[in-house]
C-alpha cells in the first residue's frame, strides 16, 4: 500500500518535470520566432511553419513523458 502512494507521487512529479522541459523548449522557440519575425517581417510564414514543426516535435517528446506518467498513475 505504501508503494502505491509513491507511484502516484512519481507520476505527479514526472508530469510536472515533463511540462517544465516542454515549456522551456517551446518558450525558447516562440521567443526566437518572435525575434526573427520582428527582424524580418517578410519571412513570417516560413518562420511560423518552422516554429510549429519544432514545437510539435518538442510537444511530442513531452507527451511521451506524460503518457508514461498516466500509465504510472493508472496501473
Amino acid at each position: 500500500m505504501e508503494g502505491f502512494g509513491l507511484a502516484y507521487l512519481g507520476a505527479g512529479l514526472g508530469a510536472g518535470l515533463a511540462v517544465i522541459g516542454a515549456g522551456l523548449g517551446i518558450g525558447n522557440i516562440a521567443a526566437s520566432a518572435a525575434e526573427g519575425t520582428a527582424r524580418q517581417p517578410e519571412a513570417t510564414s516560413d518562420i511560423r511553419t518552422t516554429m510549429i514543426i519544432a514545437a510539435a516535435l518538442i510537444e511530442g517528446v513531452a507527451l511521451f513523458g506524460e503518457v508514461i506518467c498516466v500509465l504510472l498513475a493508472l496501473k
Binding site: A56, L57, E59, G60, L63, F64, E66, V67
Partner: peptide, 10 residues
C-alpha cells in the same frame, strides 16, 4: 511511432 503518440496524447 512519434506521429501515433503525438496525435493520440494530444
Amino acid at each position: 511511432f512519434a506521429l501515433t503518440v503525438r496525435l493520440f496524447a494530444n
